[in-house]
Structure formats: C-alpha cells, structure tokens
Simulated scan of single mutants.
Amino acid sequence: MSGRITIEPLAQRPDLLATIEAWFESEWPGYYGPGGPGDARHDLQSYSRHHGLPLGLVAALDGHPCGFAALKREAFPSHPQCTPWAGAAYVQPALRRQGIGRALLLALEAPARALGHERLYCATATSDSLLLRCGWGLIERVLHEGQDIGVYDKAL
C-alpha cells in the first residue's frame, strides 16, 4: 500500500459523523439499517467523547477518511467481566488488507493504557487473522446469535 495513514479521535472530526453513519448502515444493515435495533448516529455521538470511554478513532489515508474503530466499555455477552472492548471496526471495502485495520487496532492501545487498563478484548466473526497478526490471543470460540465468534484479548 502506498499512502500515509493517520488516526485521530472522532471528537476532533465531527464533520465525519454522517460519513461514518453511512458506513455503519451499509456494513451492518441488520443492526443499523432500516428496521434494525441499532442507532448509528447515537452510537457515534457517544464515541465522540473527548475523555474516557467510549472513544472513537477515525483513520484517514492521505487525508481521506477510510476507517473507524471504537474502544468501549460494554462487554460481550459471554464475557461480562472483561473490559474495555475494541469494536465497531470498519475499513472501506476497497481499502481492506492494506494496514488500516491494523493501524486502528494499535491506536486503541494507548488510550486504553492511559485509562488504566491492562488488557483489551475483542470479539469477531470475521477478523481473526488480523487480531492474531496484531498480537492478540484467542480466549475461546463462542456461538452468538448463530455465529461462531472468536473472543480475543491483548495484554497492554
């Protein structure tokens, strides 16, 4: 991949809320789309905090927004004792497998550490290889809403 990836807090880029909302609705239509139980705008506004959790980060490639990830307090149902969680990760489809997801995952570590956390957690049905390449370890596989999900953690 050529180009420069930058990461900044969503709180510094409120101009991108509508763009990221459209990404969420497109990527997760069953949840954020019409009739789904999610509210992308509400979630993104909560990720726009200046301090604490939840916290959203925006990736840009050569200045163009291309990805998003969040650090959140809400636990995955099978692991309610674990927190915080990396989630809401999205990279524009045409730019996947070019290091943007990796950059976002790594960028979540510093704010988690700054908030006093010693571990991060993540649950995924689709990004197992990315998490493993970024140094995460598989805790276990669980069945959640009919999907095989890998639950991972990473020491900070």
Rank of each mutant, 00 (worst) to 15 (best):
Q81L: 13
P84W: 11
E25V: 12
W136H: 05
G56C: 06
L57D: 08
C122R: 02
L44V: 06
P34S: 15
R102G: 15
V91C: 12
G87N: 10
Y47I: 01
G99Q: 01
A60G: 07
P80D: 09
L106V: 14
Y47A: 07
D43S: 06
A94H: 13
W23C: 02
L105N: 07
Y90R: 04
A59N: 10
P80Q: 12
C82G: 06
C134S: 10
G52H: 04
R96E: 02
G35F: 12
W136V: 00
L105A: 13
P37I: 15
L44N: 03
L120C: 09
G87C: 04
T124I: 04
L71Y: 02
F76T: 04
A70R: 01
S46Q: 11
P111W: 05
W23T: 05
T19C: 00
A86H: 03
T83E: 07
L71Q: 09
S48G: 15
G101A: 15
R141L: 10
Y31D: 02
C66A: 15
P80V: 08
A86F: 01
A86C: 10
Q92D: 06
L108E: 05
R73C: 03
G87T: 04
A112S: 08
I20L: 11
P65F: 07
S26M: 10
C66I: 09
Y47F: 15
Y47N: 04
I20G: 03
Y32A: 05
C134N: 08
G56M: 01
P37R: 14
G30H: 10
L106E: 08
G52A: 04
V58T: 06
K72W: 11
L130T: 06
S127V: 06
S48F: 03
W23A: 03
A89T: 01
R113W: 13
A60Y: 13
L115C: 02
L138I: 14
T124C: 09
T126H: 12
S78I: 01
L55T: 07
Q98S: 13
P29D: 07
G101W: 02
